[in-house]
């Protein structure tokens, strides 16, 4: 547990001091909104389109963080240090996933209000949507920490992360889109059928946390 706290604190401190990932993610999200505005030629969004734009933006912005989450370990010998220290893979996995969740929460704290401003989406629907996004974050973080560890030790790191991560996250997108779409409907938020979509997200989160927990040690061996 102390290893988990130490790695997480290290990652958050590094991010706070260097601000390498978060500003880029926020900027990316804003740029995506502008692109969607002109790509879709719509000034207001609701229902499935709103859910799609919001989720696609969060998903692609999260790729930036997933790509970089092991960069310090790779460039400055952190992997060797972790292998030398009495730290098991599980703590590393949980710490990296927790750091990713923290990044994504900050990203959404910026991306949700701007989404509401730019596309005239009501806040009453975005508040419960933020809850759904929290479950999305857990799924992205668990899968992302796993994929990033695999890709970091290969030659084609930047190439492999999106290739591996995007298909793996399809169930998350399906579940989240199903849950968020009625929340952003034109006639105000509706909670119809949200339960089963949240169940999809919950099952996904649990399964990928368990997988990461089980296989992470094998990714650390040298």
């Amino acid at each position: 547990m102390s290893a988990f706290r130490a790695i997480l604190a290290k990652d958050l401190r590094v991010e706070l001091r260097t601000l390498e990932s978060l500003p880029a993610m926020a900027l990316f999200a804003l740029t995506s909104y502008v692109l969607f505005r002109f790509g879709l030629d719509r000034e207001t969004l609701s229902g499935p389109l709103a859910a799609g734009v919001l989720l696609a933006t969060v998903l692609f912005a999260s790729l930036l963080a997933v790509n970089r989450i092991f960069l310090a370990e790779l460039e400055q010998g952190g992997f060797d240090a972790i292998r030398l220290a009495p730290v098991d893979g599980t703590s590393l996995f949980l710490a990296k996933a927790a750091a990713l969740i923290a990044y994504l929460v900050v990203l959404e704290a910026i991306a949700l209000p701007t989404f509401s401003l730019l596309f005239a989406v009501e806040f009453s629907g975005l508040l419960p949507a933020a809850g759904v996004l929290l479950m999305v974050d857990v799924g992205i973080a668990a899968t992302g920490a796993l994929v990033s560890a695999i890709a970091t030790n290969s030659r084609a790191r930047d190439l492999l992360v999106p290739l591996l991560l995007l298909p793996l996250l399809v169930p998350v997108m399906i579940g989240a889109a199903g849950a968020i779409e009625p929340l952003l409907g034109e006639g105000g938020p509706s909670f119809e059928g949200a339960g089963r979509w949240l169940a999809v997200l919950g099952v996904y989160d649990v399964i990928f946390i368990v997988i990461g927990y089980a296989v992470y040690d094998f990714l650390l061996e040298d």
């Binding site: 030790n153 793996l168 169930p171 399906i174 579940g175 199903g178 099952v203 990714l219």
Partner: peptide, 28 residues
């Protein structure tokens, strides 16, 4: 050796993903 180990990690992850993905898409 690392190639084999990482490929196995991928195969396990993707194997667990197969039923999950079918359930999710089927619901959609």
């Amino acid at each position: 050796e690392r190639q084999a180990r990482y490929a196995s990690v991928f195969a396990v992850t993707a194997g667990a993903f197969v039923p999950l993905n079918f359930a999710a898409v089927r619901m959609a």
